[in-house]
């Protein structure tokens, strides 16, 4: 069963092209984990946002390894380029200077270990679930390329495509209205 979800079973040598790809993948995963650790544990909010950007850069690499360069580019464009900058703007506009930390001072001593154990439990459960399940592989029918994605967006998934554009329009208008209110 493991052979089905691990496609070439032979392990590559370290100093070959495939070995270099494997090393780059490990570095990418390290980038994801480091960024996530910084984003969740940093004391200052600006550093947390920087960790978020680092983590999402690594995640773009992971998408590249999942054979979707288009999604990797979108990840860089939307998350690293837009969402991180947006959150950084939020920190600059909505936080006074002395409050830009994460507010660790008045919280219960139990909160940290409790949160850690909840996270560790969830991680362990999901990992066991992912490793133990007998995944069923279906025969492949379509192509991976961006042309197929574009065709599908305009034919099969066109309704969802229109809906998502309405959602984004609503979000823009709603953000404008919310930020406008109370301004004198």
């Amino acid at each position: 069963m493991q052979a089905l979800v691990c496609q070439p079973t032979a392990a590559p040598a370290l100093f070959s092209a495939e070995g270099a790809v494997g090393v780059i993948f490990l570095l990418t995963v390290a980038l994801v984990v480091t960024g996530a650790l910084i984003a969740v544990n940093a004391n200052r909010l600006v550093r947390a946002v920087a960790g978020l950007a680092v983590c999402f850069t690594g995640l773009a690499g992971v998408y590249y390894f999942l054979l979707s360069p288009f999604l990797a580019m979108m990840q860089m464009l939307i998350y690293v380029g837009a969402v991180s900058i947006l959150i950084a703007f939020g920190i600059m506009m909505a936080t006074p200077e002395e409050q830009q930390t994460t507010g660790m001072k008045h919280r219960s001593i139990l909160a940290g270990p409790l949160a850690f154990s909840v996270g560790a439990l969830i991680f362990a459960a999901l990992t066991v679930l992912g490793l133990k399940t007998q995944w069923q592989v279906f025969p492949r029918q379509g192509a991976f390329d961006i042309k197929a994605v574009g065709m599908s967006l305009l034919t099969t998934h066109s309704l969802v495509f229109e809906l998502i554009s309405i959602v984004l329009l609503m979000a823009i208008i709603g953000a404008l209205v919310l930020a406008q209110r109370g301004r004198n």
Binding site: V5, V32, L37, F65, L131
Partner: peptide
Amino acid sequence: LNLYNCLPTYLVIGALLFAFGVYGMVVRRT
């Protein structure tokens, strides 16, 4: 070095990100 061709690797990465998210949701105060 062959990990990038395996499905469980990516599932573990996803689980790790989800756990980090839940941990942050609980521990953050802003």
